[in-house]
Amino acid sequence: MHTMWKGAISFGLVNVPVRMFAATESKDVKFRYLHKACKTPIQYTRTCPHCDKAVEWDEIVRGFEYAPDQFVVLDKEEMESVQKKRSQTIDIVDFVELSEIDPVYYDKTYYLAPETSGLKAYRLLEQAMEETQKIAIARMVIRSSETLACVRVANGVILVETLFWPDEVRPTNELPNIQSEGNVTEQELKMAVTLIGQLATSFQPEKYVDEHRNEVLAMIERKVQNQEVATAPAATAKQDNIVDLMKALQESLKATKPAKRATRKKSS
């Protein structure tokens, strides 16, 4: 895994040196846009519609649109003056119950692994949080931006989950019809509760697979095997990559097929 951040968890007078790793990764099948006529990948350029020309990065500044077509421009020095200095600590400020945090606040999850020198402190924090059944609310800086975070323990690993700030969570009273009363009868409610009871089970994440992604990968694999491929004019010397593509596709399908079969067997 690639180390995304190095620092320490700080609570009280205790510092726990850790490294941070992304806990999740996207498995979406990514496509590139090609020119239909020649199958060349499309390029996107930064252009100014007023000057009708391409714009280099050193010609670009940041502007906040406070009214239609009205901007407050901030130069590099001004942006740097308000950016948070990079911090190397995850500062715990409170310990709370996990059930008190609505899942709507969760953003991204990261694993924290201990440095060799901090293994004892890491285990101390992990076991103390397990003992008290508490999770921590913390502040940290990622990419010069201050972030609210939740520190918790799962399967012997300390995780940090970035949280949305309270004013980033939209109020539910903005939703249409949410305040309206429905005419639910006692019999309808009883049937719904019975149905939920029949479908209730323990959460087993391995049961669930992205069937759409598997179907797309299988379709791509068939086309590669049948030589239904297009080569861009400037990429004729890179056909060896087809071997790597086939291997990647086959490994992806192999990793998900057993779970898919098990899911269907249980549902039958």
Rank of each mutant, 00 (worst) to 15 (best):
S117H: 06
N155A: 14
F31V: 09
C48K: 02
E25N: 08
E211L: 12
K120N: 09
A121Q: 02
R143M: 07
P171D: 12
T24K: 09
V184K: 04
K265R: 15
D167E: 14
A54V: 14
E115I: 02
M20S: 00
E206S: 12
Y208R: 13
G7P: 01
K223Y: 10
Y111M: 07
E211T: 11
A230C: 15
L163D: 00
A259R: 06
P68Q: 03
L195I: 12
V224N: 01
Y110G: 02
K207F: 08
R19V: 11
P103D: 03
Q88K: 14
I137N: 00
C51I: 03
V157L: 09
R264A: 12
Q88T: 13
S202H: 15
T256M: 07
N15L: 13
H50Q: 11
E174P: 05
P171Q: 15
A22S: 11
H212Q: 15
P103G: 05
R213I: 03
P68A: 04
A248C: 06
M140L: 11
T263L: 10
T201L: 08
D94M: 10
E186F: 05
M246N: 11
E126T: 06
T109I: 12
G182Q: 15
A138D: 00
E100V: 05
A154D: 13
A23P: 01
K190T: 15
V55N: 08
T201D: 13
I196F: 10
M79P: 02
T194M: 12
F203N: 10
H35M: 06
H50L: 11
M219I: 10
G156P: 04
E206R: 14
E126W: 00
K6Q: 09
A113G: 07
T132F: 04
Q43I: 06
R32V: 13
A200Q: 11
M4R: 09
V169A: 11
N173C: 12
Q187S: 14
R222H: 09
I242T: 10
K120G: 07
K84R: 10
T132V: 06
E228F: 08
Y111W: 05
L217D: 05
M79T: 09
Q239V: 10
E59H: 09
R213T: 08
T147H: 07
P233M: 03
K36I: 05
G7V: 01
Y44D: 06
S252H: 03
N183L: 07
D58Q: 12
P233G: 03
V104C: 08
P68I: 01
Q204R: 10
I9M: 02
K238Y: 13
Y66I: 01
E77M: 12
I196R: 11
G63D: 03
V157Y: 02
A192H: 03
E126S: 07
K53L: 00
E206P: 06
K266L: 14
Q227H: 14
D210G: 05
L245F: 08
P41M: 03
M1E: 05
E146P: 02
G156Q: 06
S81L: 05
K134G: 02
D167S: 12
I137D: 02
E80F: 07
L112A: 01
V73M: 06
K108L: 07
D75L: 04
D52E: 12
R62K: 15
S10K: 08
K76H: 15
P103W: 08
A121W: 00
F31G: 08
K266N: 13
K254G: 12
V184L: 11
L112I: 00
